[in-house]
């Protein structure tokens, strides 16, 4: 499975990663290798086989609807790189 530079750029945008030209090429090659190795699985006949997304057959796990104390707002922003009072500040969005 050959991955193109355009694929890499599209995926990098979805994943929000800035890649240098060199990184793009390295990743393109490495992704191709891994996907080539993964090709064996596409040859396996899995018709009628359901997918497993959870290792264990648990169902219906809930918590009861009870409000509990929230964090102290000082703690909320204690790890933020950029905050104004108790709000997180981010660069312009558009």
């Amino acid at each position: 499975m050959a991955v193109s530079i355009e694929d890499v750029e599209h995926v990098a945008k979805l994943a929000r990663l800035h890649l240098t030209g060199e990184e793009k090429e390295t990743i393109r090659r490495q992704l191709s290798d891994v996907l080539e190795h993964a090709r064996v699985i596409s040859e396996v006949d899995t018709s009628g086989v359901p997918p497993t997304s959870h290792a264990l057959p648990l169902v219906n796990v809930y918590r009861e609807d009870e409000a509990r104390p929230s964090l102290d707002p000082d703690e909320v922003v204690s790890n933020a790189a950029w905050a104004v009072e108790h709000s997180f500040k981010v660069p312009r969005i558009l």
Partner: peptide
């Protein structure tokens, strides 16, 4: 990058979904 690729439109069935079926096997 690999994971985003495997989940992205057009590749999901061939990669992610197929891998989950292998998991069943």
């Amino acid at each position: 990058m690999l994971g985003t690729y495997a989940l992205s439109a057009g590749y999901y069935d061939a990669y992610y979904a197929q891998a989950q079926k292998i998991r069943t096997l």
